[in-house]
């Protein structure tokens, strides 16, 4: 417990000093929000809610995705490559403790990102929701970020390719999942593709909550399936790494 907390504290300290995190992972969704809102106007109606609210959810999801695949994934890859992860295995911090500390860090960052995006929307577009609604959406975006933490772990296995792969996944998943352009205005084929994207099923329940609808179990089921897929792939790659010689 104490070991995990120590690791978590160090991770947050590292993130607080990470300029890339603030400029890209947090800065991009904020910038996109301000730019795209002003192009359309926040009061355009979409999917039973307003554009200013709808796109707030999109960008919060985009930010969470970014911190998972970039911050978590790239950092994991670096720690594996530098022998640090191997070194940690000689300490009383268990692999499970390490994984939990990383997950806890990711949850903390997700919470931070979502709250910042909410604040930007609130103060720039006067987005105002009932307190319960804010909390519901916050809770969903927070817990729903877990599959992306698993995706980050998987990308962290990619070694030297992690940075490129992370950026690719970041862009592809956010575009195809309808975070950049709403699914409703996409061509039919793109809409079909979006239905298979984890990002779509991450954002959709939050969009539904905005329109006063409830979270659908199908979204939860698909996100769970994706989590299991990512974890299984990561475990498979871990076993391959373990059977390699030392020197």
């Amino acid at each position: 417990m104490k070991a995990m907390f120590s690791q978590w504290k160090a991770e947050l300290l590292r993130t607080a000093r990470d300029r890339r995190f603030f400029l890209l992972t947090l800065g991009m969704p904020i910038a996109f929000y301000l730019i795209f809102i002003n192009q359309q106007g926040g009061n355009v109606k979409i999917a039973g809610t307003f554009w200013g609210e709808y796109f707030m959810v999109s960008m919060a999801a985009f930010g969470v995705l970014g911190s998972s695949v970039n911050t978590l994934g790239v950092r994991l890859a670096a720690e594996r490559k530098s022998g640090w992860v191997r070194f940690l295995r000689t300490t009383p911090l268990s692999s499970v403790g390490y994984a939990l500390a990383k997950t806890l860090t990711q949850l903390t960052l997700s919470l931070f990102i979502v709250i910042v995006i909410f604040a930007v929307a609130h103060f720039s577009q006067n987005v105002d929701l009932a307190p319960v609604r804010w909390l519901e959406i916050l809770a969903w975006l927070w817990l729903g970020s877990l599959p992306f933490a698993a995706l980050g772990v998987l990308i962290g296995m990619a070694g030297n390719a992690a940075q490129v792969l992370g950026t690719l996944v970041y862009l592809v998943l956010s575009m195809l999942g309808g975070l950049m352009t709403p699914v409703q205005v996409l061509p039919k084929t793109m809409q079909q593709i979006a239905r298979w994207m984890p990002t779509y099923h991450f954002a959709r329940p939050a969009w539904n909550l905005l329109a006063g609808r409830s979270v659908q179990w199908s979204d939860v089921a698909i996100l769970l399936a994706y989590s299991m897929l990512f974890i299984a792939l990561a475990a498979l790659m871990q076993r391959r790494v373990d059977s390699r010689p030392e020197e």
């Binding site: 300290l13 590292r14 000093r17 950092r75 530098s82 022998g83 640090w84 191997r86 070194f87």
Partner: peptide
């Protein structure tokens, strides 16, 4: 206590 070869420490600490 352990020292291994080819380990570099994390950045930003």
């Amino acid at each position: 206590g352990v020292m291994l070869q080819n380990v570099s420490v994390p950045d930003r600490l």
